[in-house]
């Protein structure tokens, strides 16, 4: 059932500098997680994207980039699905 999603996850993980990725539904429940992404962070990732959407509700959901010294976390919402990609800084 989740073969297609698994394929997307594999593709993302094969990209250079990607250390983890996570997908969650609109209820903040984890659909898939791989690498450094932790299942428990699904709810918080969805909450962050929800809050960002409130900034300009008429436009399509923004991409949120959280940056630390060594890593970047990109959060993007598409319909009811929210995806997060954890990347190493180059």
């Amino acid at each position: 059932m989740e073969k297609d999603l698994d394929k997307v996850v594999e593709e993302i993980m094969a990209t250079s500098n990607v250390s983890g990725c996570l997908f969650a539904d609109h209820q903040g429940l984890c659909l898939a997680a791989k690498g450094t992404a932790h299942v428990d962070s699904a709810g918080i990732i969805v909450a962050i994207s929800e809050q960002a959407c409130k900034l300009q509700p008429n436009l399509k959901p923004p991409t949120v980039s959280l940056e630390s010294d060594q890593k970047i976390c990109l959060i993007q919402r598409h319909g009811t699905i929210t995806g997060a990609i954890f990347k190493l800084k180059t």
Partner: peptide
């Protein structure tokens, strides 16, 4: 009913 279930579960820690 539309509350973020995952976020609530994360409060446990």
């Amino acid at each position: 009913d539309n509350c973020n279930t995952g976020h609530i579960l994360a409060l446990e820690s």
